[in-house]
Simulated assay, not measured.
Amino acid sequence: MPQTRRSAQPGATLGGMRITCHQGDITVEEVDAVVNAANSTLMGGGGVDGAIHRAAGPELLEECRRWRAARWHDGLPVGEAVATGAGQLPARWVIHTVGPDRHRGQTDPALLASCFTRSLEVAESVGARSVAFPAISAGVYGWDADEVARVAVAATRASTVEVDEVRFVLFGPEVLAAFEQALQE
């Protein structure tokens, strides 16, 4: 799939953090950390979660199992984030976060914002300087792409973490347009 790279302004930065968006495949991004729109089990699934697990290989699943056994026995809570190695991905880490599911009544934008802020905090804690995000909750979890984009961009801009670059890597043109609009606001 051809990738379209865009930002609010070429080379736009906010407090030293460059924020861009483009259409592409998050599993091939050459960044320090990719964020996985995981389900609470951390065991893989569909969409971005399944694609990341398939591309990373079995070592990712094994590390997720260790996290479940050690700390998240009942699953990773919505809005929380945890880092694992990235297996066979070009990234160094995968940061797993569970987005809110509108179909289950999880409609609070603060829960969605927490996915982005906690992921950035975890990225900083492992030393990641560049992070790629998908449109968390904008797929099967039923959130409108425009709302996800506004929340994601606002949460990223409000973050005080020391990360050099945030890339929103989006699957389709409609979601890309939503993020482009949010970056221009």
Rank of each mutant, 00 (worst) to 15 (best):
G99L: 04
G75P: 08
E162K: 15
G85S: 09
E29K: 11
G87K: 05
D101C: 05
V48Y: 00
R65H: 10
A177P: 05
T107F: 01
R68L: 08
R18T: 14
V78K: 04
T4W: 06
G15S: 02
W93L: 05
A135D: 12
V151D: 01
E124G: 03
G57W: 00
E62L: 12
L170E: 15
H53I: 00
V131Y: 04
E62D: 13
L120V: 06
R150W: 00
P58F: 03
V153Y: 09
T13K: 14
T97W: 01
F171W: 12
V31Q: 11
S7L: 14
D101L: 01
V166P: 00
H22R: 14
P100L: 12
A56T: 08
G45M: 06
G47A: 08
F133L: 10
E165Q: 15
Q184S: 13
A154F: 01
R102L: 12
G16F: 14
Q184P: 02
S40L: 04
A86Q: 02
E59V: 08
P2N: 15
D74Y: 04
F133H: 14
A182Y: 07
L61H: 10
A38I: 06
G142V: 06
A158W: 01
T20D: 13
R118T: 12
R167Y: 13
E63G: 01
R66G: 11
G46V: 07
P173R: 11
A12M: 08
V98N: 12
G105A: 09
T41W: 07
T84M: 03
A69M: 06
V163Y: 05
A145P: 01
G172R: 08
R6L: 11
W72S: 02
L60E: 02
A158Y: 01
V35H: 12
L176M: 10
F133K: 14
G11C: 02
T160A: 10
R104S: 13
G87I: 05
S159Y: 03
D32E: 12
E62S: 12
L61R: 10
V35S: 15
R129G: 11
R129K: 14
A152H: 00
I26M: 11
M1L: 10
A86I: 02
C64T: 00
A55V: 01
S40C: 13
M17K: 15
L112I: 09
A182C: 10
V35M: 15
V161A: 07
E165F: 04
A38S: 12
G46L: 08
P90F: 11
D144T: 05
F179K: 05
H96L: 10
A8C: 07
R167L: 14
C115W: 07
R65G: 11
A128V: 07
P2C: 09
R150V: 03
V175W: 05
Q88E: 14
A182S: 12
T20M: 08
H73I: 02
V126D: 09
A132S: 13
T160H: 11
R150I: 03
S114G: 01
D74H: 09
I19C: 04
D49L: 03
H73P: 03
V140P: 01
E80T: 08
L89P: 03
A91M: 10
G24D: 01
